[in-house]
């Protein structure tokens, strides 16, 4: 019978292995489908994008130089940790209006998806690397190499599963990323940051920002230090903006306007290749 006012959590961002608030100090309300406020989230700005890119860039060398096998182990560890905290994620998804059964299905699919991509890390160059016949005394071979820092623009549908499906292929190739979490339902993503933090993933490899995409996409896609954009927005104007901005530094752009995130087609090694460069080596050999 107390008049206690519930404390609403303000979810923070995840940047460079830390959990800072937005540089702007602004927050916005997260509501459930009925319009009731359930939490606050940081409303990030271009400056948070800038800081996140710095963090992602400085983490890149270490992450891409890890052995593929070790990257696989770490991704697997994320899945383990997520499995361990399943209930929390189910609860968070329920809060924002997902039905219990659906929420459990989503969390489980997320775990499986991470494991799928964990398996690919050390098989990628075996499957997609080639030895090329050339008309000179050279041993010539090509292998996929991480492109660098990727910006990921996540959708509102299945907020956890969709983001995981986007992050996992990017990470498994050795890239680092900045994720703009779902605008409407960022909560499970911020918690996912905590899982990543507890899973041996070096700080800065995954950076998660919340807020209005319209305030961040422009700067993220124009940033010279971002090498790829993974976009799920179907909206024409935004896609055009991303394409134009990406052309400044010739970024790889993958538009991926999906809605059904449970579909198995998202478990697909070609998604990893979207964020890889082909490195070809010419090695002289004697005859």
């Amino acid at each position: 019978m107390s008049d206690r006012i519930e404390v609403l959590k303000t979810y923070k961002t995840y940047v460079g292995g830390k959990f800072p608030r937005s540089e702007s100090d602004r927050t916005y309300k997260i509501t459930d489908p009925k319009g009731k406020q359930i939490a606050n989230a940081c409303r990030c700005t271009r400056k948070d994008v800038r800081d996140a890119v710095v963090a992602a860039r400085s983490a890149f060398n270490e992450w891409s130089n890890r052995s593929a096998y070790n990257r696989g182990q770490i991704l697997y560890r994320i899945a383990e940790m997520l499995e361990d905290r399943k209930d929390q994620f189910v609860k968070e998804l329920e809060k924002s209006g997902t039905k219990s059964k659906e929420a459990m299905k989503q969390v489980e699919a997320s775990i499986d998806r991470i494991i799928y991509f964990a398996g690919w890390t050390d098989k990628l160059s075996q499957v997609f690397g080639t030895v090329n016949p050339v008309a000179s005394p050279h041993f010539n071979f090509s292998s996929p190499d991480a492109t660098g820092v990727a910006g990921i623009i996540a959708p509102d549908e299945a907020p956890l599963l969709s983001a995981v499906s986007l992050i996992a292929p990017v990470l498994s190739g050795g890239n680092t990323c900045i994720l703009l979490a779902s605008e409407k339902n960022p909560l499970p993503l911020v918690s996912f940051g905590e899982v990543i933090h507890a899973s041996d993933v070096p700080g800065g490899v995954v950076n998660i920002l919340t807020g209005h995409h319209s305030e961040m996409v422009d700067h993220l896609s124009a940033h010279m230090d971002v090498n790829a954009v993974f976009n799920t927005t179907a909206e024409k104007e935004t896609r055009k903006l991303i394409d134009e901005n990406a052309s400044i530094s010739v970024k790889r752009v993958t538009h991926y306007p999906e809605t059904d995130w449970f579909n198995e087609k998202h478990e697909n090694p070609y998604l990893i290749l979207e964020f890889m460069e082909t490195k070809t080596t010419w090695h002289p050999v004697g005859n």
């Binding site: 994008v49 890119v53 860039r57 700067h219 124009a222 940033h223 010279m224 230090d225 400044i248 530094s249």
Partner: peptide, 9 residues
């Protein structure tokens, strides 16, 4: 230019 830069350039 309004565009954040990269040390690579």
């Amino acid at each position: 230019t309004g565009v954040y830069q990269s040390i690579n350039y």
